[in-house]
Design a protein around this nucleic acid. Structure first.
Length: 211
DNA sequence: ATCCGGTTCT
DNA sequence: AGAACTGGAT
């Protein structure tokens, strides 16, 4: 199993090259993007982030003081904008109450940080791990729908495997390196959206055709 | 029409 | 398990 997981990584990396994740200038931007990208394609998240940037609103203080209605309007392209605006507000409030600032919040040990993130309404395991890995640069393997689908289709996991089980597969197989976790998830997303699609997957030309 | 780098509520 | 949240691209 571990060998297959490593082989999968090597094959993807050889084919696609490094993905340079996460796109974003600051940990704060990455964290906001992690919430906005829930069930939404990245292009639309970029539009939402660009709206905020264009008005200089993409900072902890500015978003905190921005009325939730204005925030919703700015992030409209990312979908679920009312819900996400509330959740972002809740996340900022939780961080402010817990630590005062983002750097202090992120300085906590990963397990504590994950628990605290999961207590915020709107942050589930995938978003928590995304924030942990890509914003706080902690060692957290991110599992998403692509990960599940790709591993299922290659008979590496059962269809009904849950988030934690799938995560364990990677944790057990891979070296404990943030850089590897970062690259691997990014590569799985790349494969998932370009080849291993939900409908009409491109199996004929898939980089994993031999795998 | 269907799909996105989900999560919460019933 | 199913519904709700939701806009934009393909």
């Amino acid at each position: 199993m571990a060998n297959r997981i490593q082989q999968l990584y090597d094959t993807l990396l050889a084919h696609f090259g490094p993905q340079h994740w996460w796109p974003g200038d600051t940990p704060f931007e990455v964290m906001i993007g992690a919430v906005l990208t829930q069930n939404t394609n990245w292009l639309n998240v970029s539009r939402a982030l660009d709206n905020l940037k264009a008005q200089g609103l993409l900072s902890f203080e500015r978003l905190e003081s921005l009325p939730v209605e204005s925030l919703a309007e700015n992030i409209r392209p990312s979908g679920y904008y009312n819900q996400k605006a509330k959740r972002l507000k809740g996340l900022l409030a939780a961080i402010r109450a817990d630590s005062g600032d983002l750097e202090t919040f992120f300085a906590q040990d990963p397990a504590t940080l994950r628990d605290k993130l999961l207590q915020v309404k709107g942050i589930g395991p995938e978003t928590a791990d995304s924030i942990l890995l890509y914003a706080a640069e902690k060692q957290a393997f991110v599992v998403d729908a692509y990960t599940h689908r790709i591993l299922c289709r290659h008979n590496l996991i059962a269809e009904e495997s849950d988030y934690h089980e799938i995560q364990e597969v990677f944790v057990e197989a891979l070296p404990a390196e943030i850089a590897t976790y970062n690259e691997y998830h990014a590569l799985l997303v790349r494969l998932g959206k370009d080849y291993c699609k939900k409908t009409n997957p491109l199996c004929k030309t898939c980089p994993l055709a031999d795998f």
